[in-house]
Structure formats: structure tokens, C-alpha cells
């Protein structure tokens, strides 16, 4: 045993994690400080700032209704309303998207018949048709549901379509050799093989669904976090409204993290490409 093993000092092993945490905490404090300072210095007192949010935070999340929240229901009720609308729309939109995407990927006729429609609608900001929805369904939660469904449907349909198109030919040849039925090919081969694309589409769909729901609530004045934000900002209760924004951010982050974790867990070989 002549070899000398150079031993790293223990702190060296410990530091990176600790350092990362401290860096991030520090950056967060600096950002909050900048926000607080700039707003105090430059803006009128009703503009939201961290100290104000901290002051009203518990009041809002403990659901104690202020005269204003009576307008829009209570905080958790609004959270629930928005979440239910988003997940309902996602469920319908994703199901339809998977079916249409599979059909477009497997059947040339369907592909050619639909690809320009789906492509053009996907490119368009979905909220642009929200006023049209109000003409059809009124200022109701049905209009919100439709806009969320459309927002969720398009990215999933396009992504699944792309995934199925890139299906390796060998898979199909094997399937043909074993006399697989069409439903075996669609749901047993094409769908699992395009799962990474489906998950990438789902990530996009969830973001779009959330945006669509919030804009619909805001614009149509129907219950939910969007309306909570609207009524509180319009009555100079910005700090309360900011709690709802933080909630929305947390929902967005939670959805993304869940989908990313699912991708890593089920498809460790897949590296998400930008889409």
C-alpha cells in the first residue's frame, strides 16, 4: 500500500448542496428586497409588495372572508373551482387529442384531412376565440370548459401525431407478422411508443389549459382564481390578489414537476426536446 490516496476535506463534499441552497435563498431574498424597495420608493401604497403579501397571507389562505371575498366566494373555493375546470378540460382534451393524434398518425386519409386544421388552430392563441365562445355559450362556465378543452386538445393531438409518425417500421413489421389487429397496433404499439411525445404534449396542454381557464374567469367574471384576482385588484386589494397569483404559480410548477418526474421515472432514456 504505497499509493497515497488524496483525501478531500469533508467540507468539500458537503458544500455544494449547502452552497446551492444558500445561493438560491440569497437570490430569492435579494429579489424580494428589490421588489419591496422599488415599490416603496416609486409606487402608490396600494401596489402589491412582499411585506403586504405577508401581512394578508394567512388571512387569505385561512379562508376568512373579507367584505370583498364575499363577491367571489372564498379563496380555497376558487382554487378548487379553477382546478376542477382545468382538470376536467384536460381530461376531455387529452382523450380527444390522443385519439385524433393516433388516427392522424396511422391513417393517411385522416392525416391529410386534418393536418392543416390542427396545425393552424395550434398556432393560434386559443384565447382569441374566447369572445366567440361567449356568443355561443354566454358568460358561463361552459364557455370556460370549451376553451380549456380546445387549449388542451391541440398540443396533445399534434404531439401524439408526430410520435406515431416516428414509430420504427420494425415494430409494425413484427406486428404484421403476428397478425395484430388495428386496435392492437394503435393502443398496444403506437400509443406506448409515442408516450414521450404524449408527455411533452401534456406539459404544453396543462400550461395552456391553466392560462385559458384564468383568462376565461377574468374576462367572463365567473368564479375561480382568475376572477378572484380581478375583483381584488380592481378594489385595490392587490396583496390579496397576489396570494392567488402565487397559488397559480404553485399549481403551474406542480403540474410541470409531476410530468417531468413521470417522464424521468417511466422513460429514463428520453431527453425532452424543446417543443
Amino acid at each position: 500500500m504505497t499509493a497515497v490516496t488524496v483525501r478531500m476535506p469533508r467540507t468539500r463534499e458537503l458544500s455544494p448542496r449547502w452552497e446551492v441552497f444558500m445561493l438560491r435563498l440569497g437570490a430569492g431574498l435579494v429579489l424580494l428586497g428589490l421588489w419591496e424597495g422599488l415599490v416603496t420608493w416609486l409606487s402608490p401604497s396600494y401596489i402589491t409588495r412582499p411585506s403586504g403579501i405577508a401581512r394578508v397571507f394567512w388571512e387569505v389562505v385561512s379562508n376568512r372572508s373579507t367584505p370583498l371575498t364575499q363577491l367571489s366566494g372564498s379563496f380555497w373555493f376558487d382554487v378548487q373551482t379553477t382546478l376542477v375546470a382545468v382538470f376536467e378540460g384536460l381530461a376531455i382534451g387529452v382523450t380527444l387529442g390522443v385519439i385524433v393524434g393516433l388516427a392522424m398518425g396511422r391513417l393517411a386519409t385522416v392525416e391529410w384531412a386534418l393536418k392543416y386544421y390542427v396545425g393552424a388552430l395550434f398556432a393560434m392563441p386559443v384565447i382569441a376565440i374566447l369572445p366567440l365562445m361567449t356568443l355561443w355559450f354566454g358568460y358561463t362556465s361552459t364557455a370556460r370548459l370549451w376553451i380549456v378543452v380546445i387549449g388542451a386538445f391541440l398540443p396533445v393531438a399534434l404531439n401524439v401525431y408526430e410520435g406515431v409518425r416516428k414509430l420504427p417500421v420494425t415494430y409494425l413489421e413484427v406486428a404484421r407478422t403476428y397478425h395484430a389487429r388495428w386496435w392492437n397496433v394503435w393502443f398496444g404499439i403506437a400509443l406506448p411508443a409515442s408516450l414521450p411525445y404524449l408527455l411533452a404534449g401534456l406539459r404544453l396542454a396543462a400550461g395552456r389549459a391553466l392560462v385559458a381557464a384564468v383568462v376565461a374567469e377574468y374576462l367572463l367574471a365567473i368564479k375561480g382564481l382568475g376572477f378572484f384576482i380581478r375583483s381584488d385588484t380592481q378594489s385595490f386589494h392587490q396583496n390579496q390578489a397576489m396570494v392567488a397569483v402565487i397559488m397559480l404559480a404553485l399549481i403551474g410548477i406542480a403540474i410541470n414537476t409531476t410530468i417531468d418526474a413521470a417522464t424521468r421515472h417511466f422513460l429514463p432514456w428520453f431527453r425532452r426536446e424543446g417543443r
Binding site: Y46, V214, T233, Q234, A249
Partner: peptide, 29 residues
């Protein structure tokens, strides 16, 4: 790298959140 490590979670948070929710505040400002 330190700047990246420090800011990464905040960038991801802004990317994930529905930006429309901030519009009323921009209106007020």
C-alpha cells in the same frame, strides 16, 4: 455558474406560471 444556480428556480417558476395572472398588476403599475 453561481448566478445560474441562484436564479434557475426563479426562471423555472416564471416559465411555469400562467403569466396572464400578472396582467392586472401591470395595469395598475
Amino acid at each position: 455558474p453561481r448566478l445560474r444556480i441562484a436564479l434557475e428556480p426563479y426562471v423555472a417558476a416564471f416559465y411555469a406560471m400562467p403569466g396572464v395572472a400578472l396582467i392586472p398588476f401591470i395595469l395598475a403599475l
